[in-house]
Nucleic acid binder design. Structure first.
Length: 95
DNA sequence: TCCTTGACGAGAT
DNA sequence: CATCTCGCCAAGG
């Protein structure tokens, strides 16, 4: 049943509107997997490049980017968010 | 099988 | 704010 959970998570992520963000915990909750934020994170981490999914709209609780500021991943995600109109501080907080 | 590691989260200090 | 402590749980060693 791990596949069903994975599919549910991807579906929820795909449904996040451009310009908005959702926390790992919220995504898990909406996917019917309460208390499974880590599973969401793990699932996204294994996403192949160019999967088409808006993985960058998923952030930590409190709306901050999950990667370390300065890391390549952090910069990638920040750029994608800024590109669709989100305000993201240098520290990674999103509004 | 046990132990360690995380794109995590909430609460207490 | 910055740390810590727990709870959670799939993977990989």
């Amino acid at each position: 049943n791990a596949d069903a959970a994975r599919a549910a998570i991807l579906a929820v992520v795909a449904a996040i509107p451009a310009g908005a963000v959702q926390s790992y915990g919220k995504v898990a909750e909406r996917a019917g997997l309460p208390k499974r934020a880590r599973l969401v994170a793990r699932t996204l981490s294994q996403l192949p490049d160019g999967s088409g999914l808006p993985w960058h709209r998923v952030v930590r609780a409190g709306d901050c980017i999950a990667f370390a500021p300065g890391s390549a991943d952090f910069d990638r995600q920040r750029a994608l968010l800024l590109a669709e109109g989100c305000k993201v501080s240098a520290s990674g907080r999103v509004s």
